[in-house]
Every structure is written in C-alpha cells, then in structure tokens.
Design a binder for these strands. Sequence first.
DNA 1: ATCCCGAGGG
DNA 2: CCCTCTGGAT
Length: 217
Amino acid sequence: MSITRKRATKKQRAIEILIRLKREYPNATCSLNYETPVQLLVATILSAQCTDERVNKVTPDLFSRFPDAAALAGADREELETLIRSTGFYRNKAKNIQGATDKIIREFGGKIPQQMEKILTLPGVARKTANVVLAHGFGIIEGVTVDTHVKRLSQRLGLTEHKDPVRIERDLMSLLPQPEWENWSIRLIYHGRAVCKARKPACAACGLVDLCPSAQA
DNA sequence: ATCCCGAGGG
DNA sequence: CCCTCTGGAT
C-alpha cells in the first residue's frame, strides 16, 4: 500500500475542486458586459488591475460613443482617455485599445483573428486577454485564463509552485481536461471574489477547506 | 524589477 | 495609510 494510493493526486484534487465549484457557482460566466467580440476585447483590456464592476460602469458610455473597431481606432485620444479614466492605467489602456483596433482594421479585415498567435500580436494583449476573448467571444478553448484570482487560488490550493502566469497556465492545462479549462478559470474567479479573497480569505465559509493545504483554522 | 494609475476597503 | 482589483510592456 503505497503513499500514492492513499493520497489524492493533484489531478484528482483539481477535478474534485472543479466539481464542487460548479455546484456552488452553477451559472458562473464572464461578468463583463459587451455586445461584440471587439467590445469584449476592449472590456478585457480595461479590466487589468480593475474590477469588472468598474469596467461595466464605463463601457455603456464608451460603446455608445465608439461602438466598433473603426470608431475606436479613429477616436480622439483625449476623449477616449476621459471615458475610461476611472479604470486606471488609462493612458496605456487608451493607447492599446487604439493600437489593437487599428491593427484589426488594417491587418485583419476589421475582425479579431481567431488564432492565438495572431491575437497575441495585438498591442496590450497577452495570454490572459487572448484566452478570455477566444473562450467567450468565439467559444475556442486554447488555454487557461490566469488572472490575479486564478493565480492566487491555484497557488493556495497547492496546484502550482510557480509565480509566472505562463507557467501556472501550463501546470493547470496539465491537470485539467481541455474542455474544462475556462470553466476552471471562471469558477476560481467567482470563488476568489466571494470567499478566497486576497487579503482575508474566508476559510470558515469555504467548501474546499479539506482539499486546501493553505486553509486556516 | 519597474512602471502605468484610479477607486474602494480595511 | 496600505492593499487589491479578471495585466502587459519595457
């Protein structure tokens, strides 16, 4: 009777965690508001270091004024900055929104490419943003979205030892079946917001305590 | 490793 | 005051 038979593997633990989180957050989905893939891309760029709730406060005015890639690319930079200012990093975000939409117009015929390598050439877009747009905009599961919540919870749950989001993503891709990758991210984000908070995790209210090496008594 | 950057909570 | 929020580029 070996140790490995008694103790659950990381993979088994990951699956059990996902089962429980699906039960707890059955209808979890992307919480950004958008009408088109381009709007989803813009909302996701805006969501860097900012709550989705705040992004959803600026996008109604933003998308009303500049509804598509052409309008965004041609927008007055200062007006755009003013519209997105409250999301923080507004100069970088405005520059990236216009750089990305301009490239979509010029090089991709006005539509967001559905290949990971091509999306990654857009300014201000790395794997986190690309995974969100591919999964929720086009239904293509290319990787695991690793944001601040997915990173923190995956580390606390002992499923990765890495700090680099790309390495964390690789670890998670090896632990979970591909069709569940985005389900994993969405549930961890919900759980991170509601229970496993960065500052003061509510372990007493967490349904994963028996599976979590970081759980506090 | 550092910078970008506002808003809200403790 | 300090920390955190669906990061990415230099």
